[in-house]
Amino acid sequence: MSTVLEKEPPKKKDLSTDEFIKGLWKENPVFVQVLGMCPVLAVTNTASNALAMGLATAFVLLMSNILISALRNFIPKQVRISSYILIIATFVTIIDYVIQAISVELHKSLGAFISLIVVNCLILSRAEAFASKNTIGKSIMDALGMGVGFTFGLLCLGVVRELLGSKSLFGFQVFPDQFQDWIVMILPAGGFFTLAFWLLVFNIFKSKKTSS
């Protein structure tokens, strides 16, 4: 009996860190799964917008994963998608109020994009593919990994676009005044260019790793 108890915890722990790590790198939602492209392209024109959006999405992902995982035996599979959307929309409304209560300025800068978290396919896909089939502990680790991975992806784009598009980083000027802003980088087209650039970098890195 005691041996079983001793054996089980480390095994669980290993699995959980695995769930966390995979979201950061191997299954990164932005660069590998290419999910949730709407906010990835739309909100990443400044680094701080990207960070705030990433954190808000991570919060919704975490909370909805917990609740969906807790209710997974209670939700009939015919109505699972509508139940998930209902739960996700609830947490988006909650984070909308919370952000307003933290700072009116922050709420102003994120504007319409907060409500758009509802339709982020990353969250729905984690609910369907993971939280509905796994324990709460695993779902938490999965959501944290994916959330951090998503925030990291958004930041990668936001940093490049803000640097080139408005010569600053987190609102502080980095390049001298003579630097000509690349207006295209803060336009939607710049989002596609930057995403393509990062996908290229990641894939070169990955193919080198596999060949070696």
């Binding site: 024109n45 102003k108 800068s109 504007g111 803060i186 336009l187």
Partner: peptide
């Protein structure tokens, strides 16, 4: 209050 496109 405004929801105008960020950056533009």
């Amino acid at each position: 209050e405004s929801k105008e496109t960020p950056g533009l």
